[in-house]
Structure formats: C-alpha cells, structure tokens
Amino acid sequence: MTAKLTDSVAQDRAGGWLAEAGLRPTRQRVALATLLVGDGKDRHVTAESLFDAVSTSGEKVSLATVYNTLRAFCEAGLMREITVDGSKSYFDTNITDHPHFFWEDSAELSDAPAEELEIKRLPEVPEGAEIAKVDVVIRLRKT
C-alpha cells in the first residue's frame, strides 16, 4: 500500500471517503482509510495485510479493530468482501460489479476484465427468492 499516513492529500481523500458513507472519522478509521484509498487507487486487502501495513506505519491499531473496521466499511457500502474457499476473506475498495482472478500460487486477488465476462444463463431461483448478486472468482495458477 503506497499512501502514507502523514500525507494530507491522502488523509483528506480518506476523510471524504468516510464522510460519503456517514462514518465517524475516528483515528483508526482515518488511518486505515488512508492506506486503503489515500492514493486514489482501488485495492484488494486481507485484514492481516492491512494490519501489517498499518503496523509498519507506526499507528497503533489491533487486528480486531482492523477486522471490525473492514466490516463497518463493508456495511456502509464502501467496500465489498470477497470470500475465497469459504474461509479466506479479501476486501475490495472497488464496489462495482466485476469478476476477480484468484492467484493460487500467491493467494492474491486481482480484478478480472468485466467486459470480457459473459454469463448467458443462471439457474432458476426458488420461489420467494431473488438473486442479490453473483460473485465470480476465477482461480489461476502459473504454468
């Protein structure tokens, strides 16, 4: 993650990101938001990778706070949670509908080109239900 916690432009961007969702800009939220969106780029993180980045910056934030903050960001509509293998969660700052590549060798998640994905048909849903969203994760390994 390239945004620096001391960069005022990055902090302003992070503060605006929190404000657009109506989230109170606590010290921890601003620190984490600065790392997530301070440079204006979308990214995929795990709670652990974000914890490592914030710890490296010198900010005191517990891993539990990182998890709770990421969940709050998701609930506020600022991020999406992508689950791989039913247990590993990645958090995406790009909230548009788009597919992902999961790189098995490095356990990294990256965006796949949405314009190249075509889903021709989905199964019929049970009565009384509707499709809320479709997550597409394409697993890759290097050859």
Score class of each variant (00 low, 15 high):
residue 76 A to C: 12
residue 54 V to T: 08
residue 93 T to K: 05
residue 91 F to P: 00
residue 57 S to E: 09
residue 74 C to P: 00
residue 83 T to A: 14
residue 76 A to Y: 00
residue 63 L to K: 14
residue 73 F to H: 00
residue 78 L to F: 08
residue 51 F to T: 03
residue 66 V to Q: 13
residue 74 C to Y: 01
residue 89 S to M: 02
residue 80 R to N: 13
residue 91 F to D: 05
residue 85 D to L: 03
residue 94 N to Q: 14
residue 80 R to L: 11
residue 88 K to H: 12
residue 91 F to T: 07
residue 88 K to W: 07
residue 79 M to P: 04
residue 55 S to W: 08
residue 64 A to R: 14
residue 75 E to M: 04
residue 69 T to M: 01
residue 63 L to I: 15
residue 79 M to T: 13
residue 69 T to K: 08
residue 57 S to L: 00
residue 63 L to F: 09
residue 83 T to C: 11
residue 84 V to E: 05
residue 63 L to P: 05
residue 89 S to R: 02
residue 66 V to N: 13
residue 80 R to P: 01
residue 71 R to C: 06
residue 88 K to V: 04
residue 84 V to D: 05
residue 91 F to H: 12
residue 80 R to K: 15
residue 76 A to K: 05
residue 56 T to K: 15
residue 57 S to G: 11
residue 58 G to I: 04
residue 78 L to P: 02
residue 94 N to I: 01
residue 57 S to A: 14
residue 72 A to M: 07
residue 72 A to I: 00
residue 51 F to W: 03
residue 87 S to L: 10
residue 61 V to C: 09
residue 92 D to W: 08
residue 65 T to L: 05
residue 83 T to L: 12
residue 71 R to H: 05
residue 73 F to A: 12
residue 51 F to K: 03
residue 85 D to P: 00
residue 85 D to M: 11
residue 64 A to D: 13
residue 76 A to L: 02
residue 53 A to V: 10
residue 59 E to M: 12
residue 56 T to Q: 12
residue 64 A to V: 06
residue 54 V to W: 02
residue 78 L to R: 06
residue 74 C to L: 07
residue 77 G to W: 09
residue 59 E to Y: 03
residue 77 G to L: 10
residue 59 E to D: 13
residue 74 C to N: 06
residue 68 N to G: 13
residue 79 M to Q: 04
residue 51 F to I: 04
residue 87 S to K: 15
residue 68 N to C: 00
residue 68 N to A: 11
residue 62 S to G: 09
residue 64 A to M: 11
residue 71 R to L: 00
residue 73 F to I: 10
residue 65 T to F: 04
residue 64 A to N: 14
residue 63 L to M: 12
residue 69 T to H: 07
residue 74 C to W: 00
residue 75 E to D: 15
residue 73 F to K: 07
residue 68 N to M: 03
residue 88 K to N: 05
residue 65 T to Y: 06
residue 62 S to A: 09
residue 85 D to C: 09
residue 60 K to D: 09
residue 69 T to C: 10
residue 59 E to G: 11
residue 59 E to P: 01
residue 83 T to G: 10
residue 62 S to C: 03
residue 55 S to R: 13
residue 80 R to T: 07
residue 52 D to K: 12
residue 71 R to F: 01
residue 72 A to Q: 12
residue 87 S to Y: 09
residue 57 S to H: 02
residue 81 E to C: 14
residue 68 N to Q: 15
residue 61 V to A: 12
residue 70 L to F: 00
residue 88 K to E: 12
residue 57 S to F: 00
